[in-house]
Design a protein around this nucleic acid. Structure first.
Lengths: 150, 150
DNA sequence: TATTGTTATACTCTATAACTATA
DNA sequence: TATAGTTATAGAGTATAACAATA
């Protein structure tokens, strides 16, 4: 037993290695649509829940409100997002996709589908199902909820 | 079959969620020793291979030489790393740990051990072995080699 | 000319905190 | 006072490219 364990004895090491590679591959694909991974997650969340408040999105994505504002600002500049005031409460805002933003989601979803299929395609159907199940189990038992961003 | 697939149908989604959570937990632990995850990986690599050249470390960590220089600069400021010129080749440098840096590695390794044990402790021995094996299989079949950093 | 390494610049993500407007 | 949101600042990671020194 070595005094200083090797990095590779940790499951977390392999998890990070594989996860980073998958994310980087997807980031490259998304970049062809001029969108980052964080932006994609943001757009996807709004696709199902138009008019969400920034604070709700912050909770859902596990980010601070400041980070959400910054991300929203960039998406507005790109013409993918619109920000509106709330007539009932002058403090509140609501966020929604523009037509361009809404059109972009299916394109990015297809890229995500292909990325997943390509990446995990080196596993057999059984292996892949087992991996998927173990990751979901882990997320469940650890009480993980927020949409992963980076 | 939905036109726009949900994020959660992708194995990569769960992989990222779990991986980010493990890394963030470890980052918090390492922060108590005033070290980032990237710095830990750097220190650990040098622990086994004193006197490595920055370029060799860059290859090993999958980073550019510029990124290595920046990381090295910070570790030198922290008193954990020393940089020396090579008498045989005036262009080359070699990096090695200081006494303080060398002492820090076992401490951080213990933190990494505990982090891994705590995090994957919610799985049974069999489940954990299966997960570990599948991740190694995936890394192998995808030809992944670089030490994961972020 | 090619190589080693550093430095400069820039962009993304993240967090904290100051700030504005409204309740 | 408390809340919703924005903005400012800073730190960490990353990549590209300009640069200096040496081969």
């Amino acid at each position: 037993m070595a005094e200083v364990s090797d990095l590779t004895v940790h499951t977390g090491y392999w998890l990070r290695m594989v996860s980073n590679a998958v994310s980087q591959d997807f980031a490259r694909r998304a970049a062809t649509e001029d969108v980052t991974v964080a932006e994609w997650t943001f757009l996807r969340a709004l696709y199902d829940a138009e008019g969400m408040a920034p604070s709700a999105l912050a909770d859902r994505m596990g980010m601070t409100r400041g980070a959400i504002s910054k991300l929203a600002e960039r998406l507005i500049e790109k013409g993918l997002l619109a920000r509106a005031s709330n007539p009932d409460d002058g403090r509140a805002h609501s966020l929604s996709l523009t037509a361009a933003g809404r059109q972009k989601v299916p394109v990015l979803a297809a890229l995500a589908d292909h990325n997943d299929a390509d990446y995990f395609g080196v596993l057999s159907t059984d292996e892949r199902a087992t991996l998927d199940h173990l990751l979901r189990t882990l997320a469940d038992r650890r009480g993980l909820k927020t949409v992963p961003v980076d």
